[in-house]
Amino acid sequence: MNGRLGVALAIAWLGAILVFALLAPLLSTHDPLQPVAAPLNGPSLSMPLGSDALGRDVWSRLAYGARLTLAAATLSTTLTVVIGSVLGLAAAASGGWTDRTIVAAANAALAIPGLVLAMLIVAAIGPSLTAVVLAVGLGAVPGFARLARTTFLQVRERAYVTASGALGAGRWWRARHHLLPNAWPSLASLTTTHFAWALLGITTLTFLGLAGDPSLPEWGAMLNSGRQHLLDAPRLALLPGLAIALTVLAVHRLGDRSAAGGSSGGSSG
């Protein structure tokens, strides 16, 4: 898809999903948790997307799913970005053994693939949606901290930072007034890429059943339960699957756009 059109479509899709998520109670026509029709009904006027294996309205579940899935991804991204940036800033600003300790710890944690680290955290807390959010958020901290540190280091090497140091500005003054504001654009682009990773991570874990409750109207869990009726009602798995895929692709598209000269790849290690 070429430049402009792709970006426009991405923004349109994300806007629509956001509206969906915010207005879920208004847009949904039925209770997403209660059976309201015969199981596996096809699309009809009152239920445009039909009912699922337990007779619940698919349209309403998708709408509430947008809310739950986006909220989970946003929360876990916030967790990663805040903790990761603080660690990265601490490492870059202080140098010396603080820096070495943080880098060594991050590298060690990175020997466990991000998703497996997240699964380890779910194992420690016990399966639930909260555990999944925490796990995906904390599991990505090592990778993000390392990327953030690199970003801060790049700013620290600039001449005006050295100059302000020569003028007597302290380490933490420079961190607050130079490193943080000037690294912000790169951090924002890293955050965008990371959001897509977090969304994939969360839906993957819930797909594997690690959210505990299979009746949750959440896209990954819906994708999993839809699998049982792949041949008689493929929409049950395809709709939430496509919703996840389109959202991730749209965020990627915006991330590529904002990362004109920045780094890419995210923290998928």
Partner: peptide, 14 residues
């Protein structure tokens, strides 16, 4: 890079 493995798997099976 964007498609979840779960979705591509289901599409392949279908």
């Amino acid at each position: 890079t964007g498609l979840p493995v779960a979705l591509t798997g289901i599409l392949a099976i279908l």
